[in-house]
Amino acid sequence: MHTDDRRAADLEELGLTNYEARVYLALIRRDVFTAAEVAREAQVPRQRVYDVLEGLTRRQLAVLHPGRVAGYSAVAPEIAVDRLMEQQRRSLGRLERLSTELAAELLPTWSSGRTHTDPLDYVEVLRDAADISDRFARIQTEAERELLSFSKPPYITPTENTAGLAAAARLRAASLTMRSLYTKDLLDDPELLDIALRFVEAGEEIRIAEALPLKMIVADGSTVMCDMPDPVARAEATTALVIRHPSLAETLRLAFQALWDEAPTLEQAMTLRTAGS
């Protein structure tokens, strides 16, 4: 593996995106770069480099030098790595607390389930993409009070998701709740961002999380649909589970709320992204 490719991969392990890693590695080669210069040096599309530089600056891995033509420089590698490690430690701490709470919440359900004569009568297993898409649409259509979802790529359902738009409008009209947490990948995809804004117009509340553990939707505090990617099959292979179990659904509602409370709104995330442009 080429040295820069290896270094970029290591930086990605520490939490940077591929573009962020490549831009940082370019910035350390010289004292100051303009955005156009670093885009060429890092081989990153010009229209993307401003967002990448804004992200590095916000994470205190790069420094903006204002002027007629703004310049950017990298912070020292040892400082950058320390800051990335600290961010990982904070994230791991949050996940450890969440996992401890989740295990404690799930244990009574698991224990009571040991005596159940047919433990799978409330679980559906779906492997076909069309079946997964249809079941997801039905969950949204049948929701009566609340829909909470973790949304992250890759997406299987049709991009228009008419069932979801109808559910958002219906729940808003009844002063009920439809909320989605997206990963920050949403901000880098104009097509998906446009779809998300249509959902906001329809009545959905959206926030942006740094990362999400899986894709899922919790309906009415009683039904959960979650995506379980196959760790050994081809990349696009996945299995979806639909679980009708109020205790599990309530536990995942708590997990959703914990991440929701820490995440910026879509408007805030978009403002942060464009602030340095």
Rank of each mutant, 00 (worst) to 15 (best):
R138M: 06
F199K: 14
P108D: 07
P119L: 11
Q47Y: 12
R30V: 06
G93D: 13
L27D: 06
A168T: 02
A104P: 00
D134L: 09
R138A: 13
A42V: 08
D134Q: 08
D82R: 15
L252C: 05
L120R: 09
L95V: 14
I79V: 13
L14K: 04
L148R: 10
Y72S: 04
G67V: 02
E37L: 02
L95Q: 13
Y182S: 07
H2S: 13
E144K: 15
V125P: 00
R46F: 07
D261G: 10
T159D: 01
A21F: 02
T117A: 14
S277E: 12
D194E: 05
R29Y: 07
L84H: 02
L14E: 03
Q47F: 10
A240I: 03
S180L: 12
R40K: 15
R58C: 03
V200E: 01
D188F: 03
T109L: 13
Q140H: 12
P45K: 11
V69T: 13
V32F: 01
E236Q: 14
A36S: 06
R234C: 04
G276F: 13
E105F: 09
R198A: 10
Q43T: 15
L92T: 15
E101W: 03
D189H: 03
V81P: 10
P108G: 07
V63C: 00
S91M: 06
E105V: 10
Y50T: 01
A240N: 14
R273D: 03
Q140D: 03
A168N: 02
F199M: 08
E105G: 15
L212I: 04
M225K: 01
V232M: 09
P158M: 05
D4F: 07
A263P: 08
R30Y: 00
I139F: 04
Y24K: 11
R94C: 04
A258C: 02
R58I: 04
R59C: 01
E201L: 05
L181I: 09
G113I: 03
P213M: 09
H65V: 08
A249C: 07
